[in-house]
Design a protein around this nucleic acid. Sequence first.
DNA 1: CGGTTGCTTGAGATCCATCAATAGGAGTGG
DNA 2: CCACTCCTATTGATGGATCTCAAGCAACCG
Lengths: 252, 252
Amino acid sequence: MTASATITSRQSVSPFIRKLRQEAALLPEDEAILADLTNSKRSVERGDVLREGAHQRSIVLVFEGWVYRYRQLENGKRQITAVFVPGDLCQPFGATPRVLDHSLAALNAAVLSFVPPRLLLSIAHANPRIEEALWCDLLKTDVLAREHMVSLGRRLATERLGHFFCEMHERLTAVGLADGDTFDLPLTQVDLADLFGLSAVHVNRALQELRSSGLLSMRNRRATLPEVAALRELSMFNPAYPQQNAVISDRA
Amino acid sequence: MTASATITSRQSVSPFIRKLRQEAALLPEDEAILADLTNSKRSVERGDVLREGAHQRSIVLVFEGWVYRYRQLENGKRQITAVFVPGDLCQPFGATPRVLDHSLAALNAAVLSFVPPRLLLSIAHANPRIEEALWCDLLKTDVLAREHMVSLGRRLATERLGHFFCEMHERLTAVGLADGDTFDLPLTQVDLADLFGLSAVHVNRALQELRSSGLLSMRNRRATLPEVAALRELSMFNPAYPQQNAVISDRA
DNA sequence: CGGTTGCTTGAGATCCATCAATAGGAGTGG
DNA sequence: CCACTCCTATTGATGGATCTCAAGCAACCG
């Protein structure tokens, strides 16, 4: 565990493969196939990557940087429905809608891959291990979406934020982008407000409460969770155990 | 279109097939394959079907009745994250989590099919039309989940409820379970509260507001939307056009 | 430097939650 | 048929979580 950090540098193994490794037992040849996917990289600036109503043909895979999905309402309000970090697929891997119901934007300069769903599907069809890993990843994304709904519906502002920090800490750790209890967090308070259905003012006050409780500190767009256990307790965060991975087979 | 209603009675064509027909051009042989899936029906009573933490092996397909997915929090609060009606798959078709993160319950007596994901996957692999239809269905479920988040985060109580009635009206019409502007709605006000992160008292008052505006009437667990257009306007509901179906191919 | 962006703070308004009580219907048992 | 309970819908009063408006401040940047 500790030794692998030196062997597999961030450059050599993409976070996507790194994440899928935890979902299924991939062979070196599987990883080679997946590595090919990430050759079609494209750099994007901060701002919209795809806009609602676009005729999209590709699945977006995040390589570097942070990306989020949102919907802009007629009345000017905005709701962010998901946040993606390196290694994440921004849509289900098997198909794209003809017309997008949401927009996709980069929080900062990012590197993305645009993969045709047909390509991903044919790889999955030909390779059961990759197929299982992709489905596991899809299910985990679904779990995150449900947790987000729980936050929006039934948690207080401090709990929503605390839960989110715990979640990002876990997700970033899984792809090697956390430094112990510290990680980058490029979201502004306005972004957090639109993510959790709050006002920016209230996000500010809730963050102050977490900081004064000693559960969070932020400096230069980096967050530190000095007491992860206490923060998880406060925000009712249940860590996802790798044993809970998805399965395709119906064997016991 | 109009004639088919007499030819295909509710008994002869399952709502599942009826829905998938709208997603992709299915041949009679495809429908025969899908009809086999629905042979393993099981009747369930009102109440939990699967409980959080269960070791689930099958995908649940709704035949008759209403089903919902929810999470029960430590502090006693409940959040309903999705509502399913006949024809709906309650999970992504390709895999199941080893351990469920949520519970599934029937609102009333229901008829369900429990389908192993491996079976669905092998059918999809062998049949590109069914595969496309299943992916379309999965994407549409995702769109509904996002709309739900928008409601939870950025809509007023009356808007959330109005939007939901519009959505259910559209979904039930698609499977032939709406009678013009009227349809069954077996949710109690407590259920609606847990679906939208509100208190039951406030749901009650918001419903009264909709009724006094002439946008809704309810009697005996049946809802009528006398002014669908006005209700859609109020709740910022955008109907889903069939043209927006998902696609796997990357052709223009 | 002026302009922009993001963070912070205060005061008052609003949406919604909570508590408490009533009433009607559906089922149940005597 | 009645008494009883449970569930659901309803109403009023009060309080709390959060919003909106408004202003000030710091950091960055061309």
